[in-house]
């Protein structure tokens, strides 16, 4: 795109707020000079119009009646308590997953590297007991 970024920014701003006099004059002068800038302005205006026109301004018929029925029944909304438990559940799920991963990593580390945990404590059996088990005939 050949339109200068600063100028483009000014062009966008001009459609949403009133520009300072100096900026307005600068933009007008550039618009008068540059066909590319005018095309750019037209494209932006077309986009804005398309967005405005794409708006759906109705719910299904009978919306007010359905809403009032819901208000009367006092049914619908999730209470503060529901919201608390929902967020608690979602936070707890993350903590649980992270904790499980940490436990596995720690266990693997201590088993493979530093022998922090004695084998018999892990398997509830001593080396001697292991030896005996391994020497037992299969059948």
């Amino acid at each position: 795109m050949s339109v200068n970024r600063k100028l483009l920014k000014l062009l966008y701003r001009s459609l949403d707020v009133e520009l300072a006099e100096k900026q307005r004059r600068r933009l007008e002068a550039r618009l008068a000079d540059s066909e590319e800038l005018r095309r750019e302005r037209d494209r932006i205006l077309a986009l804005r119009k398309a967005i405005t026109e794409s708006s759906s301004r109705t719910f299904r018929p009978g919306f007010a009646g359905r809403t009032l029925a819901r208000v009367r029944s006092g049914q619908p909304t999730r209470t503060a308590e529901d919201l608390f438990f929902e967020s608690f559940k979602s936070v707890f799920r993350h903590i649980a997953v992270v904790s499980a991963v940490l436990l596995v990593v720690l266990a693997a580390y201590s088993l493979t590297h530093r022998d922090l945990v004695p084998k018999d404590a892990i398997y509830y059996a001593s080396d001697i007991a292991f030896g005996r088990i391994l020497q037992l005939p299969v059948f």
Partner: peptide, 27 residues
């Protein structure tokens, strides 16, 4: 209603649950 519909539908698209979110807004 129309203003809330424009906002909700604009954000969520024209999906089945926009009516529900619209009602919830007023509730």
């Amino acid at each position: 209603e129309s203003r809330v519909a424009a906002t909700v539908t604009g954000i969520l698209g024209n999906t089945a649950d926009v009516d529900d979110i619209g009602q919830e807004t007023f509730v």
